[in-house]
Design a protein around this nucleic acid. Sequence first.
DNA 1: TAGTGGTCTAGACCACTCA
DNA 2: GAGTGGTCTAGACCACTAG
Lengths: 275, 275
Amino acid sequence: MTGPARARARAQRVVPEPWLRTIAPIRHGSGMTAWQQVHADVLGRIQRGELAPDDELPSEPSLAAAYGVSRLTMRRALADLAHAGVIRTEHGVGSFVAPALMRHRIDDGNVSLLESMERRGHAVRQLILSVDRLEAVPPSAADRPDGAAEAAELFRFPDFPGPVCEYRYVRYVDEVPWSTSYAVVPEVLAPPSWDGSVSLFAAMADLHDLEIFREDRRFSAVPADQDDARWLEVPVGTPLLRLTGVNTDQRERPVARIVHRIRGDRAEYAVRVPR
Amino acid sequence: MTGPARARARAQRVVPEPWLRTIAPIRHGSGMTAWQQVHADVLGRIQRGELAPDDELPSEPSLAAAYGVSRLTMRRALADLAHAGVIRTEHGVGSFVAPALMRHRIDDGNVSLLESMERRGHAVRQLILSVDRLEAVPPSAADRPDGAAEAAELFRFPDFPGPVCEYRYVRYVDEVPWSTSYAVVPEVLAPPSWDGSVSLFAAMADLHDLEIFREDRRFSAVPADQDDARWLEVPVGTPLLRLTGVNTDQRERPVARIVHRIRGDRAEYAVRVPR
DNA sequence: TAGTGGTCTAGACCACTCA
DNA sequence: GAGTGGTCTAGACCACTAG
């Protein structure tokens, strides 16, 4: 496993020093706690356009001094902004105003994210983290993502008994991390040399002359764990949209199970509801 | 606005004192940070069943002492568990192991949460927070939930010009908070005395002899703000499933726009994808 | 009133990035 | 090596709940 491929635009400009002087110390004992006031003030300044996307914020100590709070209180405010995707912090570098969040609308019909995005002119890249072959026995719940009883269900393919292949990969849209993804397919259907340049399911369909349908989709919201945080370049605890599903072939046989954990500040999934 | 209606089961038992002695101080400098080790240890003990749902944890100071860390570090670990819905903390009372999370599977066809849940034997209650009449002009983005350009879109009803009614309410399932919800409908269609005992859209349908369809649904993930936190009884920043949508009548005219912010640790929305 | 969780501080040290 | 964010501490005070 290589480290996260960082090829990100650097700060457009550093916020000029005079800007710091426009900050007034917060007032204690005014209903709101200190970190809430700081949070609101910084958010307001960003929304009002005082700071532009990719601007670098002053350092934590200097901001803390300007607001008249301790560095820890300052960090509490900044952490909340980072969770909401308003700013982004990089260890050893600085904090930056996040670029205007480009929410992608996905019509989750029978077309993959990759195809759907490329049709709209966005570049999708899939970085494969691991491919494992497993006997189709329910593994111990502990080391599976979203452990518990659901784990065994992930490995059930009644029509294709035998070992399964387990894929872990990261999807990028326009070189910004989009999701950590997990897929399980029966080994007999697995494409032997999938390199992520096409949809996994498109590869399966080609190989075995199948038609693959997205059968059902389930949505939930979960906090980013350390692994998510690392690959998606967000703080631990950031809300992620968790999308699980089953794909079937033209005879309604399950052929793949997937779990995507998608950055909540980037993704919006749209579903047409049939009448 | 009244305070949150708390009618919650209290602790089944307090974790016995000897249990505290089974905790070993964490080892510094072993790859994981202190709070990660504490987090992992507490989570493991809960998953292994040492602590049962609704058990009350020892106080923060005593836990901190047992692990050999400062109270702040202890709190960092507990905060992460609370975000994930593993424990729940009550100010001035204590921390408790959260009950096994009951994920509800919703087939989001043309049936309301209320009907769908009651059909499955769950009690749904809707608490109305406010009903406001507004001129149908795009309001300032600042004070709308999920402000920005989307705000104006919420008020567009080309077929029913004029003022709109804005509803804010909280939905409970089995007396546990489920979502904070927000709906906008044209005033000419608004039921004059909706009390939350039935679906808002069922009331509209009855009143004006409409058939109401859930036209499209969009899913995203957002952190709980202070208002969400208050009503849903979760910490600020907890991941919420954000569900927005448009309802239309039998002639495909938009008649309502809705925004639900749903506790991520309780909800899972399932959608059948049409072939 | 006692005990709990929530906020805040000042200071220290570590881990990371970059010139 | 200088500057940044990440972690951690000991201690203090506040806000809330309950007996």
